[in-house]
Computed example of a mutant assay.
Amino acid sequence: MNALTKLGLSREFTILVFLLVLVGGGWLVWNQPMKAKAVEPAEHAEVLKVWPDSATDKRLDVGQEHDTTKDDGELIAGKRVQRITNVSSAELHFWPADADVNTGTSVIICPGGGFYILAWDLEGTEIAQWLNSIGVNAFILKYRVPTARESDPAAAPTEDLQRAIAMVRHNAEKWNLAKDRVGTLGFSAGGNVIANAAFTTARYDAIDDVDKQSARANFIVPVYGARMVKKEGGLRDGMELNKDSPRAFIVHAFDDFVPVQNALELARLYKEADVPVDCHVFDTGGHGFGARFIEDVPVTNWPKLCESWMRKNGWLERIGAADSQQ
């Protein structure tokens, strides 16, 4: 302040300048983004890079990955939903089943979030815990987001999933997994991703030996899957459902803002292709319930129905290490 006075400025003007600087500095601090909360992996999860460091084209320039969960955010079954965003490079979080119950079956989980965020606990870690409880090895795919404003929001996430499926098969012997028991489970936008991966060929050029493996799942579980079919009927352009497509277990609520036609039309196309499908449409339940049980909301019992379906198809039978190499 003395320096300004020496320049011949009045004391009043000097005080005014000082206050403006003070207020302006405070405004800048107030409007800086809040320090991002880091997203820590679960203690027992092994985190794997989906793409090698050489694949620089498989990175998004989206800033620091962070957790956007708010204390006053929406409650699902009395709990908040962890929401992470700015995933620049895909990761696969491996949750192996305990050895004494391990079936050798694997499921890659794709959380939803409208291609803006990933509902990391509701549609990720909680699903992994359920799968582990029935002897299934779980992989949570932290696919690239946000991509919602891209011309094809599902393109990069689908590449991530197809590469992840190939990775699981490539490492099947090391992880004691069955190559012919690799499923995918996706919610909302994640349901769109698993449908794209199931009904299209690999969307990227092979990079290494991982990509010698098949990138198509043996079974899929879309739960309130979005944008899988066209309004006029049929799968979205570029997707094809045929006799070689993976079996499906479909879950949807009639009152979901995502049209129930996504489930019904997909089931019709499965029937047309003569591929077995289980389709469960409940009258109420809305959208985004994950696997959290809600009293008097029957749709939240879907994990029990899915377990029965998996058992019926033989995917919950335990296998030996030798079988996993087939």
Score class of each variant (00 low, 15 high):
residue 99 A to S: 14
residue 172 A to V: 13
residue 160 D to N: 00
residue 133 S to G: 05
residue 76 I to S: 09
residue 156 A to W: 06
residue 97 A to C: 15
residue 179 K to V: 05
residue 108 I to W: 11
residue 138 A to V: 01
residue 93 H to A: 01
residue 98 D to S: 15
residue 185 L to F: 09
residue 172 A to N: 14
residue 79 K to F: 07
residue 159 E to Q: 14
residue 108 I to A: 06
residue 152 D to R: 11
residue 170 H to C: 12
residue 148 A to K: 14
residue 132 N to H: 14
residue 164 A to Q: 04
residue 104 G to H: 12
residue 102 N to G: 13
residue 95 W to R: 07
residue 81 V to R: 06
residue 109 I to S: 12
residue 113 G to F: 02
residue 71 D to G: 15
residue 86 N to H: 13
residue 157 P to E: 03
residue 176 N to K: 15
residue 124 G to T: 02
residue 76 I to M: 04
residue 90 A to D: 02
residue 102 N to I: 06
residue 102 N to V: 12
residue 107 V to M: 14
residue 122 L to E: 06
residue 177 L to M: 05
residue 82 Q to I: 05
residue 131 L to V: 07
residue 79 K to I: 08
residue 75 L to P: 08
residue 163 R to G: 05
residue 115 F to I: 02
residue 130 W to H: 14
residue 86 N to C: 08
residue 148 A to M: 13
residue 175 W to M: 05
residue 173 E to D: 15
residue 99 A to N: 13
residue 143 Y to M: 05
residue 106 S to C: 15
residue 177 L to F: 02
residue 76 I to C: 03
residue 167 M to F: 04
residue 79 K to E: 15
residue 167 M to D: 03
residue 163 R to M: 07
residue 84 I to D: 01
residue 137 N to W: 07
residue 77 A to F: 12
residue 85 T to N: 04
residue 129 Q to M: 07
residue 169 R to I: 13
residue 134 I to L: 09
residue 142 K to P: 00
residue 87 V to E: 00
residue 149 R to A: 14
residue 135 G to W: 11
